[in-house]
Design a protein around this nucleic acid. Structure first.
Lengths: 222, 222
DNA sequence: AATTTGGTCGGGCAAATTTCCCGACCTGCA
DNA sequence: TGCAGGTCGGGAAATTTGCCCGACCAAATT
């Protein structure tokens, strides 16, 4: 819709904002990307807040963002950026390729999703795609998503309700059932019941497995 | 001891084997490192087994390795490589900087430890150091290690016995107490007692917190 | 309007587990 | 020789889990 203003800023290349909390990793991407003649990394950020600031001041064509960052979720950053500019093109670049995480990213407003397990060429192609206003994802992500759209609900997480997910998140974060109950204004018994329900629905037996599930699905960090 | 053979291979630069399970990340490092005139990345590997093979066939001056890899632990890879060549120089390049993980890496035979949160210059300097046969670590790692050598036993893990650590590891991996008991030829009761003891010693209350502790200390992956 | 569906919230109760405390064994060490 | 500390498990009370149930409410169906 309002792509005109973009055009005025730069006529030939694709300007990129890099967001990742690891300096060396950022440097690496920067070199990989700048090896392309038409790419130019105009800014970097190491957290969600700085990403938003950098986006405001540089208005890059594409934001390449690692969503697993300390503090505010990368999803938050995506929402913030999109709230300010509904035309922003954000390509998330993640370690994992859980269907739930991918969906969350897209529904937060991302235009693409590439895993760190992809070949550099895939990343580069994806950046070109989202710069063109298209959506893009790496092959492995597409496969996971396709597979889970065929098989009823393979992802184990979307068979969980809103409340269950919230409790799982807090549980994985290390909170006691009493703390969770207090946080959500529930009785301890209810939290216990949810805890049981979550295990029943996911088929998991151990609390440790629940934590791993939560981490894999991007509900918890570390 | 056997540094002579190294000398014959290349007389001027530092040859490097890159080990990381993410292709794009590897590409990034490769570019960062090859930007240095005297560095040359002679091989890459995406897991522990390939790392060992690549080391055998290329005999690089320095191995730069991410230890958080799927399958066999990176620590295992370090031990394997050092078992074959006690002179091998391995620089581990990790996300975390937990004292326990750092110690584990060094006792496995690593020559250096740099976190991904470090500046590229630190990585480069560290590679030069270990190539010279010295030990190296990034500032943040040094700080963590120094701090924990000053404070009695802050690291929560070294107050745990051998057996307790093993049980914590298996527990964090998602195994049931019964499975753990079976694996170690113990009664379920004993495993329960250890589980209780671990929580008592670490001051942790929740199973989820135990998992996080284990992951932070490099006992478990993911 | 009536009903079905599904998420949320919690009580109840038997069975299982946790929480502590205890004793026994073995090893290294002073 | 004796003590400290890691390993292994029993016992008993307190707590939690596993599973089932009913109640409420909101949205979707009929």
């Amino acid at each position: 819709m309002t792509t005109a203003k973009m055009m005025t800023v730069k006529s030939r290349g694709i300007s990129i904002l890099l967001v990742d909390d690891h300096p060396v990793v950022r440097q690496g991407y920067r070199r990989v990307l700048e090896h392309q003649d038409d790419f130019s990394v105009v800014a970097e950020a190491d957290n969600a807040a700085n990403a938003y600031r950098a986006f405001k001041s540089h208005g890059p064509d594409v934001v390449v963002m690692d969503i697993s960052m300390p503090g505010a979720s990368g999803l938050e950053a995506i929402r913030n950026i999109r709230a300010r500019d509904a035309d922003a093109r954000i390509l998330v670049f993640s370690m994992h390729s859980e269907a739930a995480q991918v969906k969350a990213a897209f529904s937060a407003g991302a235009s693409g999703f590439v895993t760190k397990g992809s070949e550099p060429a895939e990343l580069i192609a994806a950046i070109r795609s989202v710069a063109r206003g298209e959506h893009a994802m790496s092959d492995d992500v597409a496969r996971v998503l396709a597979l889970e759209s065929l098989v009823p609900t393979k992802s184990a997480l979307d068979q969980l309700g809103e409340r269950e997910i919230e409790i799982l998140r807090q549980f994985a974060a290390g909170h006691t059932k009493e703390q969770i109950a207090a946080n959500l204004n529930l009785s301890t018994k209810t939290v216990q019941n949810y805890h049981y329900l979550i295990k029943a629905k996911t088929g998991l037996r151990t609390d440790a497995q629940l934590v791993r599930l939560a981490v894999e699905c991007g509900l918890a960090n570390l």
